[in-house]
Write a protein that binds this DNA or RNA. Structure first.
Length: 301
DNA sequence: AACTTCCGCAACCGCCGTTTA
DNA sequence: ATAAACGGCGGTTGCGGAAGT
C-alpha cells in the first residue's frame, strides 16, 4: 500500500475516533489536570498528549469558555449589560474585543446574550438590531433603566455617588481604562458542578474545585453556585478602583470606566422620569408606547 | 399529566490570519 | 519561499430544560 494512502487511512481512523458533543466530567478533569501540569497552548498536541479524543479546537474552546479559573458564570449584571450595549454600539459584533472589557465573560457568552436577548427584543420591536433606530431606543430607554437597576440594587454609596456624579462636570469618556490593574487577587477556583453534566450519573460525586494559583484539586461540599445579590454572584468580585467614587462598589468592571459610562448615558438623557419622557418625545413618532414597555421589560429578563 | 413550543447555552463549523517546519 | 498546521473569531446549530397549553 502506498504510504500516502496509508496516511490518509490513519488520518480517517483518527477522525473516526474523535469525540463530539458535550464534554464529560472525565474529559474535563483530564483537560484541567493536563493544563495544570503543562500549561495551555499547542492545542492539538495538548489534546493528543492529554489522551483526549477531541480536536485541539474543541479543547481550547472548552477551556476558555468553561473550565478556565476566571470564567464567571451566572446572569450578566446590569452593569455588564450596559457595557455590552455601549461597546456593541461602538464596535458591532466584535465579540472578543467586547469580552476583553468584561473580565471573566467570554465572547461566546456575550454573543449568546446579544442573540438571545437583544436581537429578540429588536425582532419584537420589528427593528433591525443593528439599526440606528434600535440603538436610539436602547440609549433612550434600556440604558437608563439599567442604570436605575444598578442604582436600586447597589449599596447606598452608589446613590450618593450618582448624586455627586451629577454635580460634577462631565469629563466622562468611554475609553478602556488601562491604568486599572488587573486582578490583584488570584482568580477564583474552577468548580466542576454536577449540574454541568445533566446526562451523567454523578450521584456519588462531590463538586471539585481547582485553585488556579496552585492548580490543586480539592474536594468540597456542594454550595449554591450563585449567592443572592447582583454583586455577590461571583467569586471574583473586584473593588472598583476610583479615587472618589464607588470605592465600596464591589462589582467587576475593572477594565472599563463604568462611572464614566453611567455619566455619559445620564448626561445624554438625564436620570429622572421627566428626562426620559423628554427623550421619548424627542425620539419621534416611531418610539411608540409599546416599544417603551417592551424595552423596559427587557431589563427584567 | 402529557404534549408542544420556546429559550438559553454549549459546542461545532468555516473562514482567515499567523506561525512553524 | 511556501505549504501545512495552528489559533482565533464570528456565525450557526442542536440539545435539554422551562414554560405554556
Amino acid at each position: 500500500m502506498p504510504t500516502a494512502t496509508k496516511k490518509v487511512r490513519q488520518s480517517n481512523e483518527e477522525d473516526m475516533e474523535l469525540r463530539k458533543g458535550p464534554w464529560t466530567i472525565e474529559e474535563d478533569s483530564m483537560l484541567i489536570h493536563y493544563i495544570a501540569c503543562h500549561g495551555e497552548g499547542r492545542w492539538n498536541l495538548l489534546a493528543k498528549c492529554a489522551g483526549l479524543k477531541r480536536t485541539g479546537k474543541s479543547c481550547r474552546l472548552r477551556w476558555l469558555n468553561y473550565l478556565k479559573p476566571d470564567v464567571k458564570r451566572g446572569n450578566l449584571t446590569p452593569q455588564e449589560q450596559l457595557l455590552i450595549l455601549e461597546l456593541h454600539s461602538k464596535w458591532g459584533n466584535r465579540w472578543s474585543k467586547i469580552a476583553q472589557h468584561l473580565p471573566g465573560r467570554t465572547d461566546n457568552e456575550i454573543k449568546n446574550y446579544w442573540r438571545t436577548r437583544v436581537q429578540k427584543q429588536a425582532r419584537q420591536l420589528n427593528i433591525e438590531s443593528n439599526s440606528q433606530r434600535f440603538l436610539d431606543a436602547v440609549k433612550c430607554f434600556w440604558m437608563p433603566r439599567l442604570l436605575q437597576k444598578m442604582e436600586q440594587s447597589s449599596s447606598p454609596t452608589f446613590n450618593s455617588s450618582l448624586t455627586s456624579m451629577n454635580s460634577q462636570s462631565s469629563s466622562a469618556h468611554l475609553s478602556p481604562n488601562p491604568t486599572v490593574p488587573l486582578s490583584p487577587s488570584s482568580p477564583p477556583p474552577i468548580k466542576i458542578d454536577n449540574s454541568n453534566y445533566p446526562n451523567q450519573n454523578l450521584s456519588s460525586l462531590t463538586s471539585t474545585t481547582i485553585h488556579s494559583d496552585s492548580m490543586k484539586v480539592t474536594e468540597q461540599p456542594q454550595v449554591p453556585e450563585h449567592p443572592a445579590g447582583p454583586f455577590q454572584a461571583f467569586g471574583n468580585t473586584h473593588h472598583y478602583n476610583h479615587p472618589n467614587l464607588i470605592d465600596s462598589w464591589s462589582v467587576d468592571s475593572r477594565t472599563y470606566d463604568m462611572e464614566a459610562l453611567a455619566l455619559e448615558t445620564m448626561s445624554a438623557m438625564g436620570t429622572n422620569e421627566n428626562s426620559l419622557l423628554d427623550c421619548h418625545m424627542a425620539g419621534g413618532d416611531w418610539l411608540c408606547d409599546n416599544m417603551v414597555d417592551s424595552l423596559w421589560n427587557m431589563t427584567e429578563m
